[in-house]
Design a protein around this nucleic acid. Structure first.
Length: 466
RNA sequence: UCCCCGGUAGCUCAAUCGGCAGAGCGGGUGGCUGUUAACCACUAGGUUCGCGGUUCAAGUCCGUGCCGGGGAGCCA
């Protein structure tokens, strides 16, 4: 007999998921057992959804020896009859006719109890926390959101491209990179720099990528509209709830697009993903709304309510100055927006997602397109309540001479970027793109406040246990 | 990396002014009931994060290290 998923049992209207005589096979993990005289209730969960199936087990000679081994956490198979439940609380239940114990879970040492645990504790058992309601829900939403990302771009004719993870370039000079080497550290330390470089696998220093953007630009200038969706790495010693050393980024890049179209795409993407979560993850989102963030559903619906607000950086500065608020970091023309400023703008002042654009060139990366005012660049940041910066993007500088001047201005050598510059030598075209932090999206959609809890096995400073 | 807060039973926490180490949940045992994070009774369970110091006496005070959390910076 083929096993039936809990999700299919619970969502069945007429019980036809079972065989003609109601027979079915169920496999999963015991969430709880309630013993009565002569029989027991087992709550079995298989991860397919939030809910459990209640299994009624008689204390018969065939079943009892197996039942006694089925504590919270044990893995089992249940053969039985699907019947309408006579008691309130569930529509269906299964009357067991045979039990198989795959793996016991010793009650005295199994860390997960039938009660809520703190996030901090669950992080110390990252290998077991997916078996809790909250982390199971998060992982299902994470999977659903990944599907939604691909659906969004594929339906708009974007090609999914795979940017390299090992890279020889420092991309945008953004942040510390993880160096990758095949050399034994002790031996490498004894070599001269030149000998060491020659001994390296690639014959040159290699790093883990911090962004697929530069490569995506090359492919956008061939395929038109492309996007990457993959892991990126930053060796920054950031100890915050919003940063991880390994995280996934969605990076679309569009040929023949300007900054306004870039902002249009970012807004459409975020709205599409939020809408997808609301419609496809309703049960799991309800759990987050109940136990993680009471305002979650109103926040998500609020995002869809009205268009995002767009304002130039200089205008944002004026709004902050006119607010009458005393900020820890005073604002002045040309200053970067601090976290407190971003939060004020989207959480208090405008009370909706805000896109700030046209930043002073001094505080942005070299590849961003210089505006006609010669002072600002065509960059944009999408700020959302609670998370802050969810998206960062720009129209790219497609003019070779301007790009080279900018690189010289910020002190970047042009030689390592010869291939990047080549794209501006041959068939250069306006183009724009952005990066969306996938984990930050998940924090937005689930209400989970710490990035460590939207990644199954998070990598943060001094944390590589699992 | 900087600032602030914390570390006590498996988990979540309490312990007054420096004076005998406590509860709930979880575990074990027994009971009871078509039960719903079941319920009732009994019971076991401690290097109070490590190291050093002050004191008749330290979970409590001081120094230091480690770990965790919040905020900041960096950014997605």
């Amino acid at each position: 007999m083929q096993r039936i998923r809990v999700k299919d049992i619970l969502s069945s209207d007429d019980g036809r998921v079972a065989g003609p005589d109601g027979a079915l096979l169920l496999k999963g993990w015991v969430r709880t057992r309630r013993d009565a005289k002569g029989f027991s209730f087992l709550e079995v969960n298989d991860g397919s959804c939030l809910g459990n199936v209640q299994v009624l087990v008689d204390h018969s000679p065939q079943l009892l020896p197996h039942l006694e081994r089925l504590n919270t956490g044990a893995a089992c198979a249940v053969e039985g009859q699907l019947v309408a439940s006579p008691a309130a609380g569930q529509k269906w239940e299964v009357r067991a006719s045979a039990l198989t114990v795959y793996g016991e879970a010793d009650a005295e040492t199994y860390p997960l109890q039938k009660k809520r645990h703190s996030d901090e504790f669950l992080r110390t058992i990252a290998h077991l926390r997916p078996r809790t309601n909250k982390y199971g829900a998060m992982l299902r939403v994470r999977s659903e959101m990944a599907l939604a990302v691909h659906s969004f771009f594929q339906s708009r004719g974007f090609a999914h491209i795979h940017a390299p993870i090992l890279t020889g370039s420092d991309c945008e000079g953004a942040g510390e990179m993880f160096r990758v080497s095949n050399l034994e550290p002790e031996k490498a330390a004894q070599l001269s720099p030149a000998d060491r470089e020659a001994a390296e696998f690639f014959g040159r220093p290699a790093n883990l990528t911090v962004s697929g953007q530069l490569e995506a630009e090359m492919l956008a200038l061939a395929l038109g509209d492309v996007y990457t969706f993959g892991p990126t790495f930053r060796a920054e010693n950031s100890n915050t709830p919003k940063h991880a050393a390994e995280f996934w980024m969605v990076e679309p890049e569009m040929a023949f697009a300007d900054l306004a179209e870039d902002m249009d795409l970012a807004e459409a993407l975020v709205c599409s993903l939020v809408r997808h979560a609301l419609t496809h993850c309703a049960e799991d989102l309800a759990l987050f709304g109940n136990f993680v963030d009471k305002t979650l559903l109103s926040t998500l619906n609020g995002i869809l309510d009205q268009p995002f607000l767009r304002l130039p950086h200089a205008e944002a500065i004026r709004v902050l100055q006119a607010s009458g608020r005393s900020f820890e970091f005073p604002v002045h023309a040309g200053s970067d927006l601090q976290t407190e400023h971003e939060r004020f703008l989207c959480e208090e002042h405008f009370k909706r997602p805000v896109i700030v654009y046209d930043y002073p060139k001094e505080i942005k990366a070299f590849y961003m397109r210089l505006n006609d005012d010669q002072a600002t660049v065509a960059a944009m940041d999408l700020l959302v309540p609670r998370i802050g910066e969810l998206v960062g993007g720009s129209q790219r500088e497609e003019r070779l001479d301007v790009l080279q001047a900018r690189m010289a201005e910020v002190g970047l050598p042009s030689e390592p970027y010869w291939w990047y510059l080549d794209s501006r030598r041959y068939g250069s075209a306006p183009h724009a793109g952005f990066g969306l932090g996938f984990e930050r999206l998940l924090m937005l959609v689930t209400g989970i406040a710490n990035i460590r809890d939207v990644i199954p096995f998070p990598r943060t400073p001094r944390n590589l246990e699992f």
